[in-house]
Design a protein around this nucleic acid. Structure first.
Lengths: 299, 299
DNA sequence: TTCGCGATGTATCGATTTTTTCAGGATGCG
DNA sequence: CGCATCCTGAAAAAATCGATACATCGCGAA
């Protein structure tokens, strides 16, 4: 045939599918309808299975895929996975495709709607992060933090250092032996000497991962230090040295990544830890407050 | 019958995965974590792609799959697709607290349900915070941040200082004249001298409000400095000296308050500001990266 | 130090899957 | 009624993928 119009394949495959629904052959249409009804799972099966369930032959499926402008079945599946991934990153928006082609209410460009989208994405990130956090992993880290015989060292990268600082500020209140490592490479070399197998190093590292941190973590691991990594969904290379990993979603509609989910994770850890050691922590807090009052009193 | 090797494979693969997380090898654990963070899409890729993205080898993936009690990778993918399908068939199944009678199965005290409640509260805090933020106030602050002729000073309290650090780390990249004030009372006295009516002081202060910060803000206001306050829903006393106030919800089921909503607000400010000054910011970023490369190059 | 074991990646083979080719058959039109 | 066109599926061919055997590395014990 002559040149395929190929308007734009930027839209979701489901939408594109409904659009070409009238101009394709009957067998292809059956398959297309079935795919829409079981979107997108059916398309993730093999061609043979897809064909079997839709009661057409494999070549018919392939021809349908070709009419979507894709180069082949693998590319078709790649598209589906990409959509699925994007959807997972904003599960709250639900993006329930309306077969009637009804355009989503949409997506204004005004500040208000952009803010709302930002907020929704962050909330979704947090929800999705917590949904798959291994409870055992979480509890193990709480156990480490609650063990007052261990020393806790924290360090973060350029953007995550603030969270490390936040965590250490809280931890220091409820337990002794908390150190926030700052500065660049040189600084923590000294601290490494003090670390042993009973100590814990908590590393914050999100993408544009820091080589320095990887080095530090590797060194610490070699010294039997228990390394805990807080990272993004793509996992920092520090994971290679880490005993425990907590991964959080960071993708938001912005030029930057969002550390909100990581922060929330940290807050959850702090909440659980504080509760676990509340007997000793409350005594400690009382002592701290008394000290502060005594310092401020004579003033 | 004697013990079957696998007692139950009825649960979701994600759950099962977290269960065996402790008894598998490091490389497998890395892959498992990444899968959980990108669940389930990553598992729908080919073995080779899965392996590539997780920086392990294909056999490691297959061994991991085998340890889940599955007979092979195809069966693994079938499970994932089945889960996906089941999930799609109950559209709003999860995470909907029904205000009506129908009690959600677990208001339990187990770790899992506590975590979920924590996460839900944080998400609600963020949503509620954004719902009530005056757009004009938000825009005004963005306007200040985007004005490169102004100098920006940031300071936080004991717990919020990390967020100040986080914000300054980003701001410094996109614009000049950003200073993060640290230390206690003495330190910022010096900086006060440099501040003038064209400058901006961003104060983070949540409850147990800091007297020091109130003093600083009052002094700055006297010098015609534009004071911006990021605080909790009960408003820090700094509000008296502030030109602009952005309040966020902080209450969560924990001994501590949550700064997640404040952080999200900061990230939204950064996103809007960065976009607003993108032409100059992008040039600045390019220059910074070139500098970094030049520093790392001769190595 | 040496030995042994478990963990991990490389290379390879076999199996499955995708793609293409081609022929049967339906449909519409003159 | 006959022909042309297009749709469709069976089967072979090509490509890719999953599984396995094996070598290597690192770590801990004796």
């Amino acid at each position: 045939m002559s040149a395929p119009p190929r308007q734009d394949d930027s839209r979701s495959l489901a939408q594109q599918l409904t659009q070409i629904l009238t101009e394709i052959t009957p067998a292809e249409r059956r398959a297309a309808h079935m795919l829409l009804a079981n979107y997108p799972v059916l398309g993730l099966e093999t061609v043979a299975e897809f064909a079997r369930r839709t009661h057409v032959s494999a070549p018919t499926i392939l021809r349908l895929v070709a009419k979507l402008g894709l180069s082949g079945y693998p590319e078709f599946q790649r598209c589906l996975r990409t959509e699925l991934e994007a959807q997972a990153q904003s599960p709250l928006s639900k993006e329930r495709f309306s077969p009637s082609g009804e355009t989503p209410p949409d997506q204004g460009t005004g500040l208000a709607s952009r803010l709302q989208r930002f907020q929704e994405t962050v909330a979704a990130n947090i929800a999705e992060t917590f949904r798959n956090i291994p409870a055992a992993e979480f509890e193990a880290v709480v156990g480490l933090l609650a063990d007052e015989k261990r020393r806790i060292y924290l360090i973060g990268g350029r953007f995550t250092d603030g969270i490390g600082r936040y965590m250490s500020a809280h931890l220091r209140i409820v337990r002794p032996g908390v150190t926030h490592l700052i500065g660049q490479a040189d600084n923590w070399r000294d601290h490494l000497l003090d670390m042993g197998s009973r100590d814990v190093l908590i590393v914050f590292d999100i993408r544009r991962y820091s080589d320095d941190l990887s080095l530090l973590a590797a060194e610490a691991a070699k010294r039997r230090v228990t390394v805990v990594l807080m990272t993004d969904q793509w996992l920092s290379p520090v994971a290679g040295s880490a005993r425990h990993v907590l991964a959080a979603r960071v993708l938001v509609p912005s030029n930057w990544d969002s550390t909100a989910a990581i922060l929330t994770l940290v807050e959850a850890l702090l909440a659980a830890t504080t509760e676990k050691i509340w007997p000793s922590a409350s005594r400690r807090i009382a002592a701290l407050e008394e000290m502060r009052n005594r310092a401020a009193g004579p003033d």
